[in-house]
Design a protein around this nucleic acid. Structure first.
Lengths: 109, 109
DNA sequence: ACCGGTACATAGTAACGCTGAATAGTCCCC
DNA sequence: GGGGACTATTCAGCGTTACTATGTACCGGT
């Protein structure tokens, strides 16, 4: 992955994953696959798992451990109220940054 | 500054500053003031100077040391060809990320 | 018994922005 | 002429994040 993209993902990847989970619950492997399909083909597995553990410890998601018919048991994550609040905050921050940068792009002064 | 914003700035602040410099040359203190006026009131001075040193070492900007009538000599930065190329790459990466996230925001699947 | 695919975990590294402080020069007012 | 305000740069140390690389575990097919 380009270094620039890597750095830009910092702070946004978490929002991306939370936004995903706001649609439906999912487990780590599934999330990784999803990301790889939609524009982030080089996302490392380790990155996603680390992120999930982080948001779990912060209480933004609930975890349900369900046995799988192929492989070790899955940890299914779902967004809870704290996570939804955090996601809203993410959208606000993102919109703010986006506006600032869009202004920069157009009218240079 | 909110932690979320801090993290989101990683990777974008550099682009923001390069975009600034594409309009006109400037020195560190001036850039900091400019940022504070336009939506980033809490930017730390140290952050800007560190960033400038970084882009200088990467050869993205040219530096001109000019004496000031008030205070120590200024280091005036201007974007060079390498910097312009890097800036274009920044815009590409940014647009890419923006599209992905915008899709996420609307059609949740 | 082996291998590939599924699923999760972790240690170590590098990059980035922030905090807080130090240093230095100029100007102005008391 | 001493102290404060403003201009201007630099640096050490910190926390957070994503990546790399590796390891563990479970299953099915051959």
């Amino acid at each position: 992955m380009g270094k620039q993209e890597t750095e830009m993902l910092k702070g946004t990847l978490e929002g991306i994953v939370l936004a995903l989970l706001s649609g439906r619950s999912a487990h780590g492997y599934e999330i990784t696959a999803w990301l790889r399909e939609r524009g982030f083909p080089d996302i490392a597995e380790g990155t996603v798992y680390a992120l999930l553990i982080r948001v779990e410890q912060r209480g933004l998601v609930d975890v349900d451990k369900v046995p799988s018919d192929k492989g070790p048991p899955r940890k299914v994550y779902s967004l809870n109220d704290g996570g939804r609040a955090h996601l809203e905050e993410f959208w606000r921050t993102w919109s703010f940054l986006q506006e600032r940068i869009e202004q920069l792009r157009e009218g240079d002064s």
